[in-house]
Design a protein around this nucleic acid. Structure first.
Lengths: 145, 145
DNA sequence: GCATTTTGTATAGCATGCTGTTCAAGCTGC
DNA sequence: GCAGCTTGAACAGCATGCTATACAAAATGC
């Protein structure tokens, strides 16, 4: 019998997200990183010295979530904050040398987890899955409700 | 420029899962339900009177997670627990009449959220996405690490 | 030039997930 | 018939997400 859960995008995506997050957690634990830090690290590896508000827009989480993530990253020695000469409400967020040094190994672990998840799909199917996922994200980001 | 996040199954699925969970939260809030309760409700609507261990296997979350979810559901008047005559370590979990009465409306809301997420895809693409997602879930559930 | 609005952050409170630990009850083997 | 293993469940501690609130600094309007 086919259950609701095999026909529900929400159910499947939630389940898949938990499995992927777990796999990533295991893969990057030896580096002292956690899955929740990954999107912010990607943004900072791409461009160092951003404000919290910029990171919020790029990572698409709520400001309160980003504030807490940055607090943990600071605690863990991944970032430091310096005053922003342009706007004294905000501070600029910079990666520590330690966090910069982790980039290659962290990306390699993430790529390995992705490859493992997609292992059962051929090249075309994998690309298809990513394209469709992007379209769902875009659809939901635009939907006002 | 294409970012890592547009090529990473993990990044995309995490983002998509957050968007879908949020949309579902809004849609079922008027019913007094939360997204985390949904998988357990689906299992109990399909078969009432299961043990916690059975629900854990069906929903595929950790036992501690299920224990806490059930505690909140009990607090919210969605379930009650009765002693299991077969095994006094466990209790059988039953939906309250209130929770049973919510089934149709809750399923309708979930279906509406799924439809909205898939709105940009045609019939074939939507089916393709669900099939591929199922295969990723199965691959990761089998992977030992 | 000042009141109002907007923007940038922090914090509290809560839901949902995890690991680790503990404990009771059932099962197994000798 | 009991020691030891297995199974069912609860709870503590923590990460990651959300909403709601609060407040300071910047921008805007008149």
């Amino acid at each position: 019998m086919v259950h609701f859960k095999d026909k529900s995008a929400g159910y499947l995506v939630n389940h898949l997200a938990r499995l992927l997050e777990q796999a990533l957690a295991v893969a990057i634990r030896p580096l002292g990183l956690t899955p929740g830090q990954f999107p912010t690290l990607l943004a900072l590896w791409a461009r160092d010295g951003q404000t919290q508000a910029e990171l919020v827009r790029e990572v698409d989480v709520e400001q309160a979530t980003m504030a807490l993530t940055l607090k943990r990253m600071e605690r863990d020695g991944l970032i430091r904050r310096e005053r922003n000469p342009e706007d004294s409400r905000s501070r600029l967020i910079y990666l520590t040398p330690h966090a910069k040094a982790l980039e290659d190994r962290a990306l390699a672990q993430a790529a390995e987890v992705n490859a493992r998840a997609l292992a059962d799909l051929d090249e075309h199917e994998a690309q298809q899955f990513l394209s469709l996922a992007i379209r769902l994200v875009e659809t939901l980001r635009k939907a006002p409700d």
